[in-house]
Amino acid sequence: MAVIEARGLTKRYKEVVAVDDASFAVERGQVFGFLGPNGSGKTTTIGMLLGIVRPTAGSFSLFGASTPGALVAARARTGATLETPNFYPYMSGRDNLRIAANVKRVGRARIEECLDIVGLRGRAKHRFKTYSLGMKQRLALAAAMLADPELVVLDEPANGLDPQGMRQIRRIIRGMAERGKTIFLSSHLLWEVERTCTHVSIIRRGRIMKTGAVSDIVGGDKHVVVKADDIERLLAVMDGYPGASSARISNGAVVARLDSGDLGTLSRYLSGHGVHPSHLAAESKTLEEVFMELTDGTPPGAAEAS
């Protein structure tokens, strides 16, 4: 049984389609990255999964539950944050955790444990509004961990963090993943997702563009990079090579998708056609390259053009 299963989820705000027919599944133990430019529908999708945004169409289940009553119980097995950390600004970090702990029915000792984990015990008595963005993010993470949930949903947890803060958040997430927790992580930090996640779904303008294991997505398309003295001649020969496609010149080299065969076969083919490459290498795409292709070059942190 999938921990999260979305089937044709759609959300319309009058004329605007925020999420359009989104379907994906997150299995137990996966660290699932949800990637998309700002405004692509990530938060709306998570909002629907968490029961705070009503879908216009489609359905979803959380731990197999899909009725309103059952979903309340399913959310109790989930620790989640959405958008910015949402706390009472006039209350201390500790008191804010008490509010969440009461709902999740956990005791005070657990609050102190979680404050320790995120390194906020020393500032726990200070008001939330005095916290830096990094501290607010860490408090949100502590709140999500309070009930030791089976599923952790984090929306842009590294937003506004310095490199050290990001490293700490990543360690905490990895720690949870190593303990078998299912993690659903929305982010536009591609390298962060590539390092942390086992699976990924890429969303653009409300539509899911690609879903799968990170290794399949980045390793699925192998590219070959070839350099030679006569670059035009090299491009013409590569165009005729049956094991490659989409040959183009990029940064003084010919880049082509390697559909079949290996580098040895290609090398022999080039030599047979009188081209002697000075550089020949196979490269897998990075998640960033896949992302840029799928989102028409919209950088991950930028807003979607409507």
Partner: peptide, 15 residues
């Protein structure tokens, strides 16, 4: 405004 009501529901309260 603070979205704490929303967080309460996310934490496990029914609306």
């Amino acid at each position: 405004k603070w979205r704490t009501g929303r967080q309460g529901v996310i934490d496990g309260l029914a609306k």
